[in-house]
Design a protein around this nucleic acid. Sequence first.
RNA 1: GUGACCGUAGCUCAAUGGUAGAGCUCCAGAUUGUGGUUCUGGCCGUUGCGGGUUCGAGUCCCGUCGGUCACCCCA
Length: 420
Amino acid sequence: MQLLPGFRDFYPDACARRNYILSTWREVARRYGYVEYDGPVLESVELYKKKSGGELVGQLFDFVDKGGRHVAMRPEMTPTLARMVAARAKDFKKPLKWFCCPQFFRYEKQQRGRGREFYQFNADLIGEASLTADAELIALVIDLLRAFGFTARDFVVRLSSRTAWQEFFARVGGKPEDEYEFFQIVDKAERTPPEKTNEALAKFGLPELTAESLLAFMHSKDPGSLAPILEDLRARGLAEYVEIDYAIVRGLAYYTGVVWEVFDRGKNERALAGGGRYDRLLALMSDGRVDLPALGFGMGDIVLDNLISDTPAAREKRDAWVARERACDIYLVIAKEEARPQALGLVQQLREGGLRVDFPLGPAKVGKQFQAAEQLGARLALLVGDEWPGVKVKHLATRTEELVPNTELAEWLRNRQKDI
RNA sequence: GUGACCGUAGCUCAAUGGUAGAGCUCCAGAUUGUGGUUCUGGCCGUUGCGGGUUCGAGUCCCGUCGGUCACCCCA
């Protein structure tokens, strides 16, 4: 049986790397005062058809369930979050700072940085309209990446604004109802020859709207209304992580104001994270009953893991974490098989004390047992045999030994807790 | 979804159309109470799958499934 395309097995190695990412996400989110939430993996397909728009709908992992409902595996969190918040908006103090680490499913052809299943950190801030919220969210994404060992040399936040593009479009005479279509053209303008862009723009019938004027605006570094965000981040000492880049527009239909994406400086990977404002989505989801400004972003595990693996400092940090997580503290060497009952008693006692303890399940040569202790990353080996009721304690790093009576062992270990 | 390239042992790869191999990993022994070395031995394949051409196919042809990359887009 083959693995389904785009899906992953998590053997212990891969599982440890995934857990490193998940636990780092959680740790940093809590530092910023976010609380974790979650929702269902399966949603009605309608939720995404109405709200996500564009590419995502074509990538839905959808099917009809046994009750005849057309359902989809979740491809993103925002519609679910919007529904949850709209349903109980009055139960929570504003602003809400919620995060989650869900697994998403998108039916697309897999390649580097893209699978049909992935984990994505999501943080959303709901109920705050000012740009201080945008800055707070961007500060979080910067600190998340710094927590993995990345620096300003490794990544950059490219900051843009749909509002700026709306104003640009209005200046040349564009109508608001054409905005979304216009954004799609802007999104592709850098990858399209100018003649093709002009062809696409012609349908709006606006003589001032040309590929040249569009590209000129796209490449301007004028912060405009984004200036307060840059000021805020400068005050935090995070200015070097952000650049103005109006080429960022984002495909999802619900974004309204500030939008941004994070890229590696080497440009070897796809976007590491992306987000922005969706001030109208909650009103849309609740038919106007709840109207709260909102913003959020996502960061996927696959691109992130690629970049960690390709960045020495980040890789070392991850590998150290993985080794620490997996190591056992103590390995019990059973030198004489007759001493197994005493050894089992010790194992149980030490485990109840919260130590990570391992031992051989069957008769094994002492040499093999020390080899196992080494491979499991144990710091101490306790040898049980002829010395009983004494236990030989060996520091595996220094290869030094000392004899401790088994009745005093718990006390002995407690006094050396820091070293274990 | 479209196009290009690629599928041989758990991994990395060999094999002018002529008997499917090596290194690493794993297991065991050398070493009966002390570790990453060394040496020896062992396990491991319907050459992704199905058809065709041929006396003979891992090798050539067709299909299919999977992978990589590009387009598309983004986590």
